[in-house]
Design a protein around this nucleic acid. Structure first.
Lengths: 207, 207
DNA sequence: CTTTTGTTTAACAATTTTGTCAAACAAAAA
DNA sequence: TTTTTGTTTGACAAAATTGTTAAACAAAAG
């Protein structure tokens, strides 16, 4: 009998999540997903009406999580260094779950700007929080904690260093003949590497 | 009359380049491209046989350019610092032309690994050049020119800092309300920002 | 001028993918 | 048990997209 958010519905959503955001198969058809979930294709329509809506549901859910986690940290009362640390932590946690999320954000926001603008960019008070954060970065540069550059460049560096190894994972694994285990290790080390670079704490051997 | 690589063929290819790699519309149909080029859709098939082949032609062409430019620099006899500078320069030049190339590489290499492995990863002597380059990075860390970390992490930093602002352009522009002009300026400044960070030349205000 | 060669077009066919529907089914409620 | 409600299925319809063909066309070569 009926159960709100039935097992099947949940299964389909999780499978779609796997296929889209973990495997990066953005062209997967409804049949592909149904097969992967081991259910009849019609059920995708029964629960999600259309392929588009299923995609959207999965994508928006992941997007919302990422966004809210980032904004929570950015808007928090933490001091600068722990805030950067928390930001790195939060970002990495979401990306480990959905390695292709960043790639999809990139493609989607370019193809349906109006649809996703509200979802990703315009959250209540978002712009203000962001500006405040840039101010904090600027102040930290004044204090000499971090190297001087335009705050937005610092912001870009932060996300670049975190997101890219996930975006380019298949490429890098091939280039350097790295097993899944080996690459995961690199991703784990990444946290310290990125923090050291961002917080200007790196030591060179001599000088 | 017949001209080898006719005007139309060229036009179609350039339009496909524009649509796929500049606008990132990887789902564009043959009709979309024909419309954008202002030609009859049948001509795509006449010149390129299938949609797949057109996509492949455009993608592989860009891929090959990027690959050869990077490997030329990596394999060159330049000293470390000028080599990094040349690498940054080469990479940025290609990315300005094809902002979505990296994103597509990511998706494609994941979906048709065998097809693209030879093309991107396995070029003659590629693996050796790469290893030599990692050794050079390591030696430079010994010398104290750059901060110490696993060479591959340095390599990832390099490409992350360069590629990400192009990949995430639409998102960042929205987030910070930046005009095309403003963003281009940021991309231009990027060269110095990245080099300073990679070569550890950044100055903090006080300390 | 007419032939040849290559280009462009519209009409059509094939395929792939999505979406709908009515009937079969299962389990709880009446 | 019968009814009701929600689930699952297969068959079918619709749409979107790709690919083919034959005929019209244009320009140079003979």
């Amino acid at each position: 009998m009926a159960v709100k958010d039935s097992k099947t519905e949940q299964l389909i959503k999780e499978t779609a999540q796997q296929v889209f955001l973990k495997e990066g198969r953005m062209l997967a058809t409804t049949q592909d997903i149904a097969d992967a979930a081991g259910v009849n294709r019609t059920l995708l329509h029964y629960y999600f009406r259309s392929r588009d809506q299923l995609f959207d549901t999965v994508f928006v859910e992941a997007l919302t999580e990422l966004r809210s986690r980032i904004h929570d940290v950015i808007g928090s009362q933490l001091a600068f260094v722990p805030k950067i640390e928390a930001l790195v932590q939060a970002f990495l946690e979401v990306l480990v779950q959905h390695p292709f999320l960043e790639t999809f954000i990139t493609l989607q926001i370019n193809q349906q700007p109006e649809r996703y603008e509200e979802l990703f960019v315009q959250l209540p008070g978002g712009k203000e929080r962001l500006k405040t954060f840039l101010k904090e970065i600027e102040r930290e540069m004044e204090l000499g904690t971090i190297p001087q550059m335009k705050p937005i460049q610092y912001f870009i560096n932060l996300f670049a260093l975190l997101a890219y190894p996930h975006i380019a994972r298949p490429l890098l694994q091939k280039m350097f003949d790295l097993s899944d285990t080996a690459y995961k290790k690199i991703l784990q080390e990444r946290k310290t590497v990125v923090l050291a670079l961002l917080l200007h704490q790196y030591k060179t051997k001599d000088q």
